[in-house]
């Protein structure tokens, strides 16, 4: 058995590396989640963009409430891949928008748990999280998955 140890270690390290690699690959995916009861079942990237730009405010008669991470790489990734704006641009956009049209800024939450909890509690809520973090689907559903660039 002893003579197999280096082999086992090699293979094991290989598997471990593979796993880490795979996990890294999977971690690049961002899931768009909505409330389980929510009106959206599917959403295109364009639709998600419009929602986060505050241009699409209703779906199936329910007001849509978009929620962001307060800050961080997931938010930056989401903004750059879906909204096609950086944080500064997004702020400028919303500053202008709320003064011109009224309404509120998108909601902000500090953590993954709080985002999931927010979405599961608000019928019209829509949010985004890392796909890998998503294990418990209670009260929520995934309407789109996007690759992180």
């Amino acid at each position: 058995m002893k003579k197999h140890i280096p082999t086992i270690i090699f293979l094991s390290s290989f598997v471990a590396l593979g796993t880490i690699f795979a996990a890294n690959l999977y971690a690049e995916e961002i899931a768009i989640i909505v409330n389980e009861q929510g009106p959206l079942t599917q959403a295109s990237e364009a639709e998600i963009r419009e929602i986060y730009l505050g241009n699409m405010k209703f779906a199936g008669g329910t007001a849509i409430v978009a929620v962001h991470y307060r800050e961080g790489s997931v938010k930056d990734a989401f903004l750059s891949s879906i909204v096609k704006m950086n944080s500064r641009e997004y702020r400028l956009y919303w500053t202008k928008k709320i003064f011109q049209e009224g309404g509120a800024l998108p909601a902000l939450q500090n953590s993954f748990q709080l985002i999931v909890s927010f979405v599961s509690k608000n019928k019209g809520a829509i949010g985004y999280v890392l796909r890998t973090e998503l294990t418990d689907m209670k009260g929520i559903k995934v309407v789109a998955t996007i690759q992180r660039p």
Partner: peptide, 23 residues
């Protein structure tokens, strides 16, 4: 501190609410 941006969001939100009401 970039957290000041969040404070900005809060104040700007309040401002827009006040301004919308004024309008």
């Amino acid at each position: 501190d970039s957290k000041e941006r969040d404070n900005f969001d809060g104040i700007i939100g309040e401002m827009s609410r006040i301004f919308t009401e004024i309008k």
